[in-house]
Design a binder for these strands. Structure first.
Lengths: 228, 228
DNA sequence: CTCCTTCTGGAATGTCATTCCATGTTGGAA
DNA sequence: TTCCAACATGGAATGACATTCCAGAAGGAG
């Protein structure tokens, strides 16, 4: 039901604010979101925004939560293993699409871990872990391990994107990292130097999934010795 | 050799600045470190600090790097598996001792992943992965997976500490989390609700190691089918 | 029309990081 | 010993922010 008298601009609302915040974050990075840019974008004043949102932190949380919720809303019918991969990839891709997510997720995890984001992901993964057949007493620990891996890997990945995006393409970036590793002190970093070549041309997505499979293999080996 | 003419106070130096920064961070948290508190602590002016340190980010990086380096400097003689556990626990404990580390590590990883911290950890873990017998083509991927898990878990853990420290003791905090989970919507969060009880009284350290063993079991299963 | 709640815009405030600059300090060259 | 240039220092000025305050529209109920 539209108001009888038209407003100059569309009415402000929490949704519109969060939406604008996400757009600013996507286009200009974390530094691009300030109350100044936000008021300009929304053609309003700071006070108006504060009427709908408590503070910047809450705004960031809401943006993060919204994007994550959308990423997890991928209903895929399949085996538990496939669903876990789907959830993990959903997160992975979301971070790739919204570079700021990595930092934000990390911050949110290391500040208020039991906010709305963690339970969401925990639930998605946990259901599948149970479906996998992991016994009751180990559900919490097993799911936590899986979620830890996913966050750790996703976070590390976001870093790659951040580094690659600015300058040239991905190839260049990986070459630079590889070269930097090869230049490390041979006495202090023999291993890192040795694997420097493997960095070049690796696919983040594949590597992420390979690691996930590793953890899943561990779960199978430890908790499901007979089934597969 | 002391200078002939005594200074009013001990000479400023990058080390002394970083040291003071770590102390401020440890005692007053991330918000406690400002150039104001730092200049007061060191009885100097902002300009003097900027002579030794480019900016606050570099200061944070140096603080993080220093603490991590110390944490990794635990030479333990043992099997690769034991050494990996030692390294992981070293990080885990460092984060427990310095609550700000979690956020800082997360930020550093998601911003400049190939700074000095990552290679350090990567190297420590990687050597042991190789010693474990993982074949050459898989060293990079396998080590990355392990490191991802460690970071993810350590980060999540730091959150727990942050939550527990302020108010009452750990028991209370876990009870609160457990209760919050039990209050979630039964339709949206059946799994999380179901494992809420497992949260109460669990030991972070044990859980961290259990997850690590899970990943190690996966590595063994996938890459070392015959050996143990 | 009028009162009250809900919202709005923008000015004012306070906290930071960072920059600038006038001034010490030092160690070596002359 | 004297003097200079590079090295260091402290603190005042600046500018970017988040956040708070407040004067007042807008819109509906009576």
């Amino acid at each position: 039901m539209a108001p009888r008298t038209r407003r100059r601009t569309e009415a402000l609302s929490r949704e519109r604010i969060v939406e604008a915040a996400v757009e600013l974050l996507d286009t200009s990075g974390e530094a691009g979101l300030t109350f100044k840019t936000l008021t300009e974008r929304l053609a309003t004043g700071a006070g108006a925004i504060y009427w709908h949102v408590a503070n910047k932190g809450e705004l960031l949380d809401a943006a993060t939560d919204g994007v994550i919720a959308a990423a997890l809303a991928v209903g895929s019918p399949g085996s538990p293993r496939e669903e876990i991969r789907a959830v993990a990839l959903g997160l992975f891709d979301a971070i790739e699409r919204h570079a700021w997510l990595a930092t934000q997720l990390a911050l949110q995890l290391s500040r208020s871990p039991w906010g709305s984001v963690t339970p969401r992901i925990f639930e998605s993964i946990g259901r599948q872990v149970r479906a996998l057949g992991v016994p009751d007493g180990h559900l919490f620990t097993t799911t936590s391990a899986l979620v830890s891996y996913i966050f750790g890997a996703a976070g590390q990945n976001a870093a790659n994107n951040a580094g690659a995006a600015p300058g040239g393409d991905r190839e260049e970036f990986l070459d630079a990292v590889s070269a930097a590793w090869e230049d490390l002190d041979p006495d202090d970093y023999p291993f890192t130097r040795a694997v420097a070549a493997e960095v070049r041309g690796h696919d983040d997505r594949e590597q992420f999934l390979a690691g996930l499979d590793l953890v899943l293999a561990g779960i199978t080996a430890v908790h499901l010795p007979r089934a597969g």
